[in-house]
Every structure is written in structure tokens, then in C-alpha cells.
Design a protein around this nucleic acid. Structure first.
Lengths: 187, 187
DNA sequence: ATTTGATTTAAACAAGCGTTTAAATCAAAT
DNA sequence: ATTTGATTTAAACGCTTGTTTAAATCAAAT
């Protein structure tokens, strides 16, 4: 409910109904809507970042393999749960009191094998633009953004049904690594 | 208020206060919160699409120049009003009853000079992936997505302040055309 | 069979919400 | 100076919201 409608639009009564329990039971278990929401946010973000951490720190796979793996993983995840990306960005946006700080993404990232590999690629001249932030914005933009504009948008533009949209995303699993590679070599 | 907090979280009393008018005056002018919201959505989307239409149908500029122009335009706009992208995608997401259909984006797009130019590039072998949707997802992903993950995210990752974030976006005005070009040639 | 404590419920509460009402104010026309 | 109609206001309305209360139900232990 939170993921689909956001915090403010989600009603505790609807949540209780969907859970098949009584309204008061929510308060009994979670004390408040806010507390329940924090649980959901934490679980959602944990799932989101755990996959990231595991891949980024895997020393047995190359830089290019990581890109391939991340793209396919996220496309698989978000194809099954398409509400998650927008949920994360929306709620982080409106509750920017560092909801993210708790996950130590910065430290996790800069100490990762991935960033080390990134810098090696830069040093070797394989990556022209050395700013990691640009790289991440590009990769996430190409990979995650389609799920943010989402089905309604794509449907309006291309008259695709759900199945065709999934097919399109499936195609991107193979296309994205080539595109990212091209971006890295550019300029 | 709607753009920053979304429909459900925005309070009519806060809107009235921010507008410097009495609460009842909102109802007098707009009948309801819903009607006011529709006005805001319409104005926001109009601004968003008008620029698009103007650029896409300009016969006097090349395909590559269009990409350059669109990237710089959107980065300029969203740097000034960073809440707009997330607002559009959030509200379209949760109110998918074709809020978009009214803008005839599909027709506007497929009859545009831009799409014609795109197909010429495909025919000439300059663009390897012929699916326009992939191209659009990539372009918008690279251009718009940074404003969706936004300052809070980038700040958490790169410890940037507002000024540095803008600087980063400014850099992208020149980088994006090269990246898109690289993507088009890829594979 | 009773007791005990956790679980679940129906009902109500107080606060906040969007909206309406009815009166006051103002500017322009007569 | 009055009238007229639009504009603005204070106040309240009725409904929905998140939350609490107090009682009922249940399962396990004595």
C-alpha cells in the first residue's frame, strides 16, 4: 500500500483490510502508521541495497561483469515489483531528513571493490569521464528510469501492454552493458 | 505544494497560507482541491511538453542539434524547478487513468520531424537500435533521472551541496550529447 | 475446570481534513 | 449616497483520519 500510493495516501484501514486483520491490530503491533512505514521503508531499502553490496564487493567478477549483473538483477527485480523505484525516490524526496544516512551507502560504495575497479578503468584510459557520480547517474538512469516512467507512460507512447513492456525490459538486459561500455569510451 | 509534497500530502490550509489568501477562497476560485490540482497538473505538463514539441518539430535543426538542445533545455528547467520531474511521474503513476491521453503525446511524437530524422539515422546505419522507445528511455534516463534521484541522494553519495550539484548538472549539458551519440553507435 | 496472558475485536475518540455557509467588505455604477 | 455584484472573511460543518479503549476470545499452563 505504501509502495503503491505513498505514505500520505495510504490509509491504515485499507492496510488492515488488505492484511486481512482488524484495524486496531495495526496499532497493537506497530504502535503507529509512522512506525509501520519505517519498517516498510527499511525492508524495501535493505532489499534494494543488499543486492548492490553483494555484487559490488564480489572480487571474483570483472568490472564489466558487474555492470551486466547489476543491470539484469535490477531489471528482474523491478519487473516483478515495479512500484519500488518510484516509492524509494518519492519518499526519500519528501522525507529527506537523511533517511539514507542510516544505510551508509557512501562508505559502502567508496570502499567497494567496484569503485576500485572503476578507478583502474579510469587509469587505464578505458573510462574517459572520471567522475563516479556521472557514471552512476548514467547507469541508474538507463537501468532504473524506465521503471519510473513506467507502464502508463510507455503505454501511452508505444501502446504496449504489460507483456510487451516486460519484453522491452528483457531486451535491455543485453543492450545496457553495450550502451554503458559505449558511454565509458565516449569523448 | 502539490509539486513538492504530492496530492495527498498537500493540505488546502497550507496552500491557502502559502498563497497568502483565506482558506475558503480556494473553494471559491477552484471549487475543490481536486480541481485545483488538475489545474496545476495541466500547467505543469503543458510547460513540460511545449518545449518538447517546439524542439522536436523544428525543421531547421539537425537530429544531433535537437539532442543537444533538449538536454540543455531540460537541465536548465529542472535545475530551477527540481520538484517537477518526480511530481509528474509520481502523480501519473498513482492516477494512471489516462492523465496523459489529454496531451496527445503519442500523436505529437510520431508525426514529429524528430521521429522522421530518427528513422533516417536508423536507415543510414547511424543508429543501431531501431526501437524509438529504447532511445527515449535512454535519453530521458540520462537527462532527467539525476533530478529524480535528486539532491538528497547525490548529497548522500558525493557530499555535494546545492551549488556543486548544479555544477554537476551543468557539466552534463556538454557530456550528454556525446554519450547519446556513443549509445546510438553501440553494438 | 480455572487461571493467565496474549491476541483480536467492535466501538468510540479526538484531531485534522476538505468544504460550505452566511455575513462583511470593497469597488464601481447609478 | 445607494445599489449592486464580486470578492474576502470568520466560523462552523460533516466526514475521514489515526489512534485508543475496554471488552471478548483464544491457547496453554496449572
Amino acid at each position: 500500500m505504501f509502495q503503491k500510493k505513498g505514505y500520505a495516501a495510504a490509509r491504515t484501514r485499507d492496510i488492515a483490510e488488505e492484511a486481512g486483520i482488524n484495524l486496531a491490530l495495526l496499532s497493537y503491533y506497530f504502535r503507529s502508521k509512522e512506525k509501520l512505514f519505517e519498517v516498510i521503508v527499511y525492508e524495501t531499502l535493505s532489499g534494494f541495497f543488499q543486492n548492490l553490496i553483494d555484487v559490488l564487493n564480489d572480487g571474483s567478477i570483472t568490472f564489466e561483469e558487474k555492470i551486466e549483473l547489476l543491470a539484469t538483477n535490477y531489471i528482474t527485480i523491478f519487473s516483478k515489483e515495479p512500484d519500488i523505484p518510484l516509492f524509494i525516490f518519492s519518499e526519500v524526496h519528501s522525507r529527506s531528513e537523511n533517511l539514507l544516512g542510516k544505510f551508509f551507502i557512501r562508505r559502502m560504495l567508496i570502499t567497494s571493490v567496484f569503485v576500485q575497479q572503476f578507478q583502474e578503468q579510469v587509469a587505464a584510459g578505458k573510462i574517459k569521464e572520471p567522475n563516479l557520480l556521472h557514471f552512476m547517474m548514467n547507469f541508474l538512469g538507463i537501468t532504473v528510469f524506465p521503471f519510473i516512467i513506467g507502464k502508463p507512460f510507455i503505454s501511452a507512447l508505444g501502446r504496449l501492454n504489460e507483456r510487451q513492456f516486460s519484453q522491452l525490459m528483457e531486451e535491455r538486459k543485453k543492450l545496457i552493458p553495450a550502451w554503458i561500455k559505449a558511454i565509458m569510451s565516449a569523448e
